[in-house]
Computed example of a mutant assay.
Amino acid sequence: MKRLLRNTLRSSWVQRAAGFIAAEFLRLVWKTNTFTLDPPNVYDIVEPEMPVILAFWHGQHFMTPFIKRKDYKGKVLISRHRDGEFNALAAERLGIGTVRGSGDHGGAFHRKGGVGAFKEMVRVLEQGINMALTADVPKRSRVAGMGIIMLARESGRPIMPFAMATSRFVQLKNWDRTTINLPFGRGILVGGEPISVPADADQAMMETLRARLEATLNDATQRAYIAIGRPESAGHA
């Protein structure tokens, strides 16, 4: 019975249905929350630098497709894991292209399709398309990985860290504190200081910039939740 249930949940029609429902629910959340920008001119800062690498934390990603304006081109990195399938379908329904693979540069990098995904992300940026991905790698929440720093060095494109939050949300008790945003509230997009990685950056400089990205994202996330008047730990509607 468990095997039948597992196979059913992994079936393509269930994944498609889940992707459709997730996308339309997020669209409802976007339309029924009043969003503000911090700083107010955040798009004026980002647009001249495009294409850029958009960085955010795992578990804080559900509203990120909506930062895209109609004339922007963007793709997002999504895991090849079966749980990533409906996320990919939802993203594509919301007008965001996908790159499938892992941002992890650890021992499982090759097995998870990381090398191919890395090369594809470089190509995406070369084509003038923005690339979005989580800065932290699976099972290491709020710890920026080196993969995104390597991508910035290889592509020559700046990293734009940001955080989004809504005043009504549910937070799961899992490794990345997944936050499910809810309708009928207030929201905010907080942009952090852009980070550029020189093409000749050595390991020490890359580690310094990795730590800066981590601190910037933590600061942006904290500012976002302060702005909406709710601590992140208050994960109930």
Results as ranks from 00 to 15, higher is better:
2 K>Y: 05
2 K>A: 12
3 R>Y: 12
4 L>D: 15
4 L>T: 14
4 L>N: 15
5 L>E: 11
6 R>L: 12
6 R>W: 12
10 R>Q: 15
13 W>N: 14
13 W>L: 14
17 A>L: 13
18 A>R: 13
19 G>F: 01
19 G>V: 05
19 G>R: 07
21 I>Q: 12
22 A>S: 11
26 L>F: 10
28 L>P: 00
28 L>M: 06
29 V>A: 09
31 K>M: 05
34 T>G: 08
38 D>G: 00
39 P>V: 06
39 P>M: 09
41 N>F: 02
45 I>A: 11
47 E>Y: 02
52 V>M: 08
53 I>M: 08
57 W>F: 09
57 W>V: 10
60 Q>T: 01
61 H>R: 13
65 P>Q: 03
65 P>H: 03
67 I>C: 02
67 I>G: 05
70 K>W: 12
71 D>T: 14
71 D>L: 02
72 Y>P: 01
72 Y>A: 11
73 K>E: 10
73 K>F: 11
74 G>W: 00
75 K>G: 03
76 V>T: 12
78 I>Y: 09
80 R>E: 06
80 R>M: 13
80 R>W: 11
81 H>L: 08
81 H>A: 12
81 H>T: 01
85 E>A: 08
86 F>M: 15
87 N>Y: 09
92 E>A: 00
94 L>Q: 03
96 I>H: 04
96 I>D: 00
99 V>K: 04
100 R>I: 09
103 G>T: 00
106 G>F: 06
108 A>E: 10
111 R>L: 15
112 K>A: 15
114 G>V: 07
118 F>C: 06
119 K>D: 11
119 K>M: 09
122 V>F: 07
123 R>C: 04
124 V>C: 02
127 Q>S: 13
128 G>I: 06
130 N>M: 05
132 A>C: 09
133 L>R: 05
134 T>G: 11
135 A>N: 01
139 K>L: 08
140 R>Y: 14
145 G>T: 07
148 I>Q: 04
149 I>Y: 11
152 A>Q: 09
153 R>Q: 15
154 E>I: 00
155 S>R: 02
156 G>Y: 08
157 R>T: 03
158 P>C: 01
160 M>I: 15
160 M>C: 02
163 A>S: 15
164 M>A: 10
166 T>W: 02
170 V>L: 14
172 L>T: 06
175 W>L: 03
176 D>Y: 00
176 D>Q: 02
177 R>V: 03
178 T>L: 11
179 T>G: 03
181 N>G: 01
185 G>A: 09
185 G>D: 05
185 G>Q: 04
186 R>T: 05
188 I>H: 03
189 L>K: 01
189 L>N: 00
190 V>S: 01
194 P>K: 07
195 I>V: 15
195 I>E: 05
197 V>R: 03
197 V>L: 07
197 V>Y: 03
199 A>D: 13
199 A>W: 10
203 Q>V: 10
206 M>R: 14
207 E>N: 10
210 R>A: 08
210 R>T: 04
211 A>D: 10
212 R>T: 04
213 L>D: 00
213 L>R: 04
216 T>F: 02
217 L>M: 15
218 N>Q: 12
219 D>G: 03
220 A>Q: 00
221 T>R: 04
222 Q>T: 14
224 A>I: 08
225 Y>R: 07
227 A>D: 11
228 I>Y: 06
228 I>G: 07
231 P>V: 07
233 S>L: 04
236 H>N: 08
236 H>V: 10
237 A>M: 08
